[in-house]
Amino acid sequence: MLAWLATTSLTWRKSITHVAIDVSATYRAAIRTGLPHTRVAVGHFHVVQLANKMLWAARRRTTAEVGGRRGRATDPKRSARRRLLRSREDLTDEQFATMWNALGEGQSGSRPC
């Protein structure tokens, strides 16, 4: 990327104010070096993807520490995770209500949207 930026005009590089990238230390370093005056933005998809990866790693680590084994497809926590990763449009009303009620237990006035 830096080699490509070096082939572009300085005027063009200075006109760039914002850059949208995925979550990559390599891309960020290249932007910081080649376009130091720009603001870096990360797309919504990549933020959600990173959060899901972190949740997956934490769930996997916790399952191994607590249960002394890998998780199984029949584990309730696994099905809850799969449900949380799906969009509302892909859930049946029953699946959404199950998820919502589990998240809202103990809170008065909780109801599905």
Rank of each mutant, 00 (worst) to 15 (best):
R39M: 12
N101K: 05
T62Q: 09
I31C: 03
T62G: 01
H46G: 08
T38A: 11
K14A: 14
G106S: 10
A58G: 05
R72H: 08
D93M: 07
I16K: 00
F96Q: 03
G67F: 06
A57G: 08
Y27G: 04
A58C: 09
P112W: 00
W4G: 04
Q95S: 09
H37V: 02
D90I: 01
T62H: 15
D93F: 03
D22F: 04
R78T: 13
H18E: 02
L10P: 10
R70W: 05
H37C: 01
A64T: 15
S108E: 14
R59C: 12
R82Y: 06
M99F: 07
R60E: 13
G104I: 03
G68P: 14
G43Q: 01
R88I: 06
T92E: 09
D93C: 04
S110W: 13
A80E: 06
A80R: 06
D75A: 01
K53C: 11
M99K: 03
A20V: 15
M54T: 15
H18T: 08
T74R: 10
M1L: 04
H46M: 10
A64Y: 07
R82E: 15
K77S: 13
E94W: 01
T62V: 14
L84I: 07
T38H: 03
A3G: 11
L84G: 13
T62C: 10
R111M: 02
H18C: 05
L5W: 01
R86G: 07
V40Y: 08
D75M: 01
